[in-house]
Write a protein that binds this DNA or RNA. Structure first.
Ligand SMILES: NC(=O)c1ccc[n+]([C@@H]2O[C@H](COP(=O)([O-])OP(=O)(O)OC[C@H]3O[C@@H](n4cnc5c(N)ncnc54)[C@H](O)[C@@H]3O)[C@@H](O)[C@H]2O)c1
Ligand SMILES: NC(=O)c1ccc[n+]([C@@H]2O[C@H](COP(=O)([O-])OP(=O)(O)OC[C@H]3O[C@@H](n4cnc5c(N)ncnc54)[C@H](O)[C@@H]3O)[C@@H](O)[C@H]2O)c1
Lengths: 225, 225
DNA sequence: GCTACTTTGTGCATCGGTTCACAAAGGGAT
DNA sequence: ATCCCTTTGTGAACCGATGCACAAAGTAGC
């Protein structure tokens, strides 16, 4: 996962990688509006970051700007896409087709940028065999076979917490090294596997922390009366 | 520097705040299993972090451990909960009851930790009036009234991207200062408002970046042979 | 070609966060 | 009370990320 920060010039900082999709989205919007070139200042505003940070981020990819002018939108879109690996198609499997898995399967935003939902897998006999978002839901017993057959390289985990580690182990056993986990558990994986987690509950708790601080202030007088 | 004020140092690092929910979850699991005390080492493993980091994090809340013994589970749960503001109930409104909003509304994980879905709001006449997860879906025209009436302090945005900024502005106008945004847009808000974003597409792109790197390496040799 | 202006790319100071490593603090045994 | 063992809490070194500020590199007008 957090594998050695390689000495190669290919060593793009993790913080930069996390922002590239943001720039890409802003650039796509500009391309649609027919904007041909953009300055770091304008792009930074659109992406909600500081312009010096943006320039430094882009400098890690190469020197793709023109001083006195800015960046050519189409060209930059291509360069960032290439760097992120979006010039190829990624087959994604969603395991656990409940409330959340269904929402994800029906979501169009995936497909738009190089990601293709290639398989849906669930354990519930009620759900297996259903067609959701044009895809047949397959049985968890077939998990390994489905992943290999469809060339899945990214797995989205949307099972209950209790099942997540086992599913995780199984997909890793057939070579998957990228996992997006929605289940509220800490997955244990080899260093070679990337896990990113999305945890709603954590986000709300962080908001609550700040909200409490705002409300209470330095004195926090609870006048329950 | 703002230390040396009479009360406890309120400046908890942001990175620490983001991990407290993780510790809390691990502690809840331990409490359920009847564990009375836990060492920083064990808790760190359960939460998936380094034990020195965990100790430093907890030290920001106060000295709640006993040297040679560890931390009392129940007590630590209480202290972290209090710090995060989970000893009170937070009323949450979900705006945009589509694929995602529905999944969130039906999700039990919210309620479990001090959060209560208090309102569902949508613009689609087909959806308004429906009952989802025991709640009546209200019309977007009523947005401000509903938020005030139900005492909502946290808003979850699950509308299409195009509608997010407007809804955001409106909820801020009635005093909301905490927003969890699922729409793929950069929201523009005053400094006093906290926005956290969850962006699926960005997570996948980050995974793709690392996946590409693993697969291709510096030379991108497709070793057919 | 020369000057005036714009904008990139980056050196550098700074900051927040992580990790190491250890003295201090406690428990338990004798 | 003393010794030994465990574990906390934290000083300090380290590391990556941020943002300022400016030289370098380009455009445009004359
Ligand atoms: N729904 C949300 O808004 C939300 C929000 C945050 C986190 N989560 C988390 O996401 C996960 C899914 O949530 P949900 O609301 O969709 O739950 P759900 O119960 O609606 O869906 C879970 C699905 O996983 C399937 N499943 C169970 N065991 C399985 C296994 N071993 N292999 C494959 N599939 C299996 C079930 O049959 C079910 O269809 C949970 O871990 C939940 O905590 C959900
Ligand atoms: N579904 C997913 O898995 C997923 C994943 C990542 C991001 N998102 C984002 O989350 C948002 C919602 O996604 P979705 O799949 O649920 O979309 P959806 O189209 O199913 O639902 C959107 C809902 O918002 C309502 N709406 C539209 N305009 C509104 C307004 N002005 N005020 C109130 N409600 C309004 C619509 O009536 C609809 O019910 C989108 O921005 C999407 O990009 C969704």
């Amino acid at each position: 996962m957090k594998s050695a920060s390689q000495s190669r010039d290919r060593g793009i900082p993790e913080a930069t990688v996390a922002r590239l999709p943001l720039y890409l989205r802003a650039l796509h919007g500009m391309a649609e509006r027919g904007v041909a070139t953009v300055s770091s200042e304008d792009l930074a505003v659109a992406a909600g970051v500081n312009s010096a940070k943006l320039r430094k981020d882009l400098s890690h990819l190469g020197s793709y700007g023109t001083r006195g002018v800015g960046y050519e939108v189409e060209y930059l879109v291509y360069q960032i896409s290439r760097e992120l690996g979006l010039t190829q198609d990624w087959a994604v499997a969603i395991v656990g087709v409940g409330n959340l898995g269904r929402a994800l399967a029906n979501y169009g935003g995936f497909v738009s940028r190089g990601f293709r939902v290639a398989a849906l897998v669930d354990a519930d006999p009620e759900v297996v065999g259903d067609t959701i978002a044009g895809l047949n839901v397959e049985h968890i017993d077939e998990l390994e076979a489905v992943i290999k057959r469809r060339g899945v390289s990214i797995v989205v985990l949307a099972t209950p917490a209790a099942a997540a580690q086992e599913v995780c182990d199984r997909v890793i056993s057939v070579g998957v090294t990228s996992i997006l986990n929605f289940a509220p558990v800490v997955l244990s994986v080899p260093d070679s596997v990337d896990v990113r987690k999305v945890d709603l509950s954590i986000e709300l708790q962080i908001l609550a922390f700040h909200e409490q601080r705002k409300a209470g202030g330095p004195l926090m007088a609870v006048d329950g009366q």
